[in-house]
Write a protein that binds this DNA or RNA. Structure first.
Ligand SMILES: [Mn+2]
Ligand SMILES: [Mn+2]
Ligand SMILES: [Zn+2]
Ligand SMILES: [Zn+2]
Lengths: 142, 142
DNA sequence: CAACAGTTTAGAATTATTATAATGTAGATT
DNA sequence: AATCTACATTATAATAATTCTAAACTGTTG
């Protein structure tokens, strides 16, 4: 998804009707500096509280999944209680803060390419992703 | 958990009463050659069909979580629909077969140590895990 | 063999997610 | 602009995974 606005164009490009719900969701998701990692509930809350936009839960689910299918969002598995989504759809690694339950993106400089020596006959590698779990370091408290 | 039997001893060691349900579950989980990756439902089915042991769903949930807390099982996140557990509680990497939805353990020889250059102040790294997704290679079909 | 704490159980409750079906609307057709 | 139609939104019901509850049961200790 683009940097700034014209979400209407962008939606149309992939064959999604630019309804006002979809445009509002784009604004919330993509008008921001950094990658956004969220649950459906986070998103519903944001829409309703910050944006004053009441969108039915079913629509939020439908739209998030439509965006996922079109490559505007990526689902990530860090917790099996609920689904997390990521506005950064490129293949990338994550730090997961076990204290705050926040996800942080890595870029190419943060982790060296992973060297995989195993190979499964008849299968090809589709993705390689690293999850680094961190927590507050209670070692250095003088 | 041990290679063969005497689960009664082992359970007692960590302060879990060796009830017949718990011992049966140990047998199903640990009397096997390789690591076992499973969902609660897989386990309930195994117990009931293969072992002819009807254990209440609530007990299976309770016991799996008790085992997890005691370090006999590890929870892994690959899919957000349901929880997966792993009898291999060591820190290890996985291949995930997107066709069969099977998990395969890696050992130290399969993937080189991951070199992490990013560091978050005040936080220490608790774990680093790699997930390699594979699928059938439809390239080489002469 | 008590007595008690911990355990199992059926079933209800909760939470996340998906399905249904009626109503609304974007965009094309006249 | 009025009409049409496919697709979208919505409230609500249904389903699925998980957790809670409270009563009955059982392993252990004395
Ligand atoms: Mn999905
Ligand atoms: Mn858990
Ligand atoms: Zn990310
Ligand atoms: Zn494993």
């Amino acid at each position: 998804m683009p940097k700034n606005c014209n979400f209407i164009e962008k939606l149309r490009e992939v064959g999604l009707r630019p309804t006002k719900q979809r445009v509002k969701m784009c604004e919330v998701l993509y008008n921001r500096e950094k990658t956004f990692h969220f649950t459906i509930n986070d998103l519903v809350k944001l829409l309703s509280e910050k944006m004053n936009q009441k969108i039915s839960l079913a629509t939020v689910y439908n739209t998030v999944h439509a965006f996922e299918k079109k490559g505007y969002l990526k689902e990530i598995s860090i917790n099996s209680d609920k689904s997390y989504f990521d506005t950064n759809t490129s293949l990338h690694h994550h730090f997961y803060d076990e204290d705050t339950h926040e996800l942080i993106d890595c870029d190419e400089n943060d982790i060296d390419p992973v060297n995989i020596k195993k190979n499964i006959t008849g299968k090809k590698i589709n993705s390689v992703e690293v999850l680094v779990k961190v927590a507050s370091d209670n070692q250095n408290q003088k």
